[in-house]
Design a binder for these strands. Structure first.
Lengths: 151, 151
DNA sequence: ACCATAATGTTGCGTCTGCAACTAGTGCGC
DNA sequence: GCGCACTAGTTGCAGACGCAACATTATGGT
C-alpha cells in the first residue's frame, strides 16, 4: 500500500471514529433531554445558541447554520418552539425580509433547567466513549481543544 | 469562573465543534453520493462495513451498530438495498433468529464505483473544515488518529 | 422436560428532515 | 424610476428515523 493509499485510509478511519462518537453523544443527549425536559437535541442547541448570543436576537439563517439545519427545518423548528411559548419571532424594521428570534422567559427557564442535564450527560457520554479503545484517542483530542476565551 | 466550570465549557465547546465538523462532512458526502451514485451516506457506510468484513457475512445487529442505527432503521435499510439487488439476506442455520447479510456482485460493483467519490469528497470536506478557524484544531487532531494497522 | 427471561428482527405510528418550488423584499446597474 | 439578480423565509412532498409493541427463537434455572 502506497503513501497516498495510507492517507485515504487514515481519513476514512478518522471519519468513522468521528461519526461513531458523534452518534453516541447525540443518542445519549436525545434520550435524556427528551425524556426529562421534552426537548430534542437540536431544539436545545438552538436555544443554547440564542442564549449565548449575549441575550440578543438571531436571524433564522444564522440559527440554521448554528444547528446545521436546512432553511426549511429551521422554519419548522422555530414554529414548534414558538407554539410552545419558548421562543418568539420578532420582525425587524431595517430589513423587512429578516426575522429575528429570541428566547422568552419561559424559554430561558427551560434552558436553565435542561442545562445541568445536558452537561452531565455529555460528560458521561464522553467517558463512555473513552472506554472504547477505538474512540478513546479522538475523545482525548477533543478535550485538548480549549476555547480561545479560556486560554 | 472556577476550574469545574471551565471543564464544562471545554466539553460543550468540543461537542459543538464535533457536531459542526460531522454535519459538514455528512452533508457533503450525502449530496455527492446521492447525486452521483444514488446511495445515501448510511447506505454507503453499511455496504463499506460489509465489504471490509473480509468478504463475510454480518448480522443485522452488528450492521445496525456499525452504522449507528436503530434496529428498525437497519431492517428497512437492508430491505431497501435488497430490493435494489445490492445486498442479500441469508438465513443462518445455527441460530435461526439471526439473519446474515452479504453484498451481491452488483453491490460490490456499485461500492467500487462510489468509493473514489467518497474518498475525494471526504478529503475536500476536511480541507474546507480546516479553513474554518473554529474547526481547524479538531480536523488536525483527526489526522493524527492513525489506525493501528498502519503504525 | 418446562417455564421464565433474554435476544433477534419486523411492523405501525408519529415526527423530523431535505429538496425544490414559491412569495416577499433588497439593492445594484442603468 | 425600472428591471433583474440575489437573499430570507415558508410550504408541499416524499423519504428516513426512533420508539414501542410484537413474533420468533435461544438459554438458563429447577
Amino acid at each position: 500500500m502506497g503513501i497516498a493509499d495510507d492517507a485515504v485510509e487514515i481519513r476514512a478511519h478518522g471519519w468513522r471514529a468521528l461519526a461513531a462518537v458523534y452518534s453516541l453523544i447525540e443518542t445519549a443527549l436525545e434520550r435524556a433531554l427528551q425524556s426529562r425536559h421534552g426537548v430534542s437535541v437540536v431544539e436545545y442547541t438552538v436555544m443554547d445558541a440564542l442564549d449565548r448570543q449575549d441575550g440578543w436576537h438571531m436571524r433564522m439563517r444564522q440559527l440554521a447554520r448554528a444547528a446545521a439545519l436546512s432553511n426549511s427545518a429551521a422554519t419548522r423548528l422555530v414554529t414548534r418552539l414558538e407554539d410552545r411559548g419558548l421562543l418568539a419571532r420578532v420582525l425587524c424594521a431595517d430589513d423587512r425580509r429578516g426575522i429575528y428570534t429570541e428566547l422568552t422567559p419561559a424559554g430561558r427557564t427551560l434552558l436553565a433547567e435542561a442545562r445541568p442535564t445536558h452537561d452531565a450527560v455529555l460528560r458521561e457520554a464522553l467517558e463512555e466513549a473513552e472506554g472504547t479503545p477505538e474512540l478513546a484517542p479522538l475523545v482525548a483530542a477533543l478535550r485538548d481543544l480549549a476555547p480561545q476565551s479560556l486560554t
